[in-house]
Amino acid sequence: MKIRVLLFGQLAEASGVSELEMEGYADTISLISALQERFPTLQQSKYMMAVNQQMVSENTKLSENATVALMPPFSGG
């Protein structure tokens, strides 16, 4: 099961990537813990999460080809 992960702003900067593919994670908790292992700076970062462009705050099941975005606090305008 492929998941597309997007990182933005300071998260992309700190991890050095803005987009990656992860495989084999059924929900956001397992995905996040794998991402934290790969990018330790994520553990201290403040961010919100969107699954297929919908904001989520609780553990969310992921389906094939889901897009998960990790987003630091917004600072547009």
Binding site: G9, A69, F74
Partner: peptide, 27 residues
Amino acid sequence: LVERIKAELPVWGAELFEDNTHQWKVN
């Protein structure tokens, strides 16, 4: 609209300094 745009749109601003360093903007 202005308030909602600043609070709800996934947009990020990096403040660039004259010496080529930067910091992330906080709304």
